[in-house]
């Protein structure tokens, strides 16, 4: 389905994840972040960039991998993206929701 984000018509799934990463840009991230009650700092952007890189390299994401990324540790990840960090961060980054249980 389609929804309007930052004035653009964007393809999303029923959970609100972008289905076409090519449609993602920073203005979309800002809107999705504010919906999650997060205001993006340079630290957030760094992590979003890392997640998008992993996605481009087809690396499956998990909390364990985040902890070993060298970009952010698990504690800070939970602080920056409170509640469900991996789900929230991937949504803001415009990439699919990870299917990992760990």
């Amino acid at each position: 389905m389609e929804r309007t984000i930052a004035g653009k018509s964007i393809a999303v799934n029923e959970e609100g994840y972008l289905t076409d990463f090519k449609q993602w840009d920073k203005s979309i991230a800002d809107v999705l972040a504010s919906e999650a009650e997060i205001s993006l700092t340079p630290r957030h952007w760094e992590i979003l960039g890392y997640l998008q890189n992993e996605y481009r390299n087809e690396v499956p994401l998990s909390i364990r991998k985040i902890g070993k990324s060298g970009v952010v540790d698990i504690k800070e990840f939970y602080q920056l993206f409170p509640k469900a960090p991996l789900k929230t961060a991937t949504k803001i980054a415009g990439i699919p929701k990870p299917a990992s249980c760990i």
């Binding site: 499956p60 998990s62 909390i63 364990r64 991998k65 902890g67 540790d73 698990i74 504690k75 939970y78 990992s100 760990i102």
Partner: peptide
């Protein structure tokens, strides 16, 4: 193989996750 940590690492993950 399925990226499951061993117990000591898993405990650290749980702690860090709150």
């Amino acid at each position: 193989k399925i990226d499951m940590p061993e117990v000591p690492e898993f405990l650290d993950i749980l702690s860090a996750s709150g």
